[in-house]
Amino acid sequence: MEQLIATLVFVTLGFFFGRRAEKKHYTSLIEREEKLNALPVIASRIPPYDAPYEQSLVSGSVVIANDYFKAFVAGLRNLFGGKVRSYETLLDRARREAVLRMKVQAKKQGADYVFNVKFETSNISGQYSKKLPIVEVHAYGTALKKIA
């Protein structure tokens, strides 16, 4: 019974706080993406050769913790299969945040482009992975700055 109440409290807390955090994060993501959208981020491996470029590795990484509500829904989802919608937003936020951080780094260097952008996603919750996954998303690429 106590376990049930504890689960209920955690799931409710997770729902309200998780949702609030997610909403806030999305608002901030869209705002910052608009600010930084003048910097092209490209997945292509072939850099432009119109001019000599200074190259450097830029990366952005973010660690996002799950909440009990999402974990609970995902646990239930395991029974039936299908899209784990609760984790889709979690990972979407993480990817976009990672790209933004990478862009900030590139912008500081005065880069004109970021080429060959890639993502790494890893679970860093270790042996507690069954309980609450904590996810790291790492975006990295090659920043190119035109040599004047």
Binding site: N37, L39, V73
Partner: peptide, 19 residues
């Protein structure tokens, strides 16, 4: 850059419904 539309990689459905 054009800002991509929201809700492609995620679902708009209220999470409570899935729950």
């Amino acid at each position: 850059n054009k800002q991509p539309p929201e809700g492609i990689n995620t679902s708009k459905q209220h999470p409570f419904k899935e729950f």
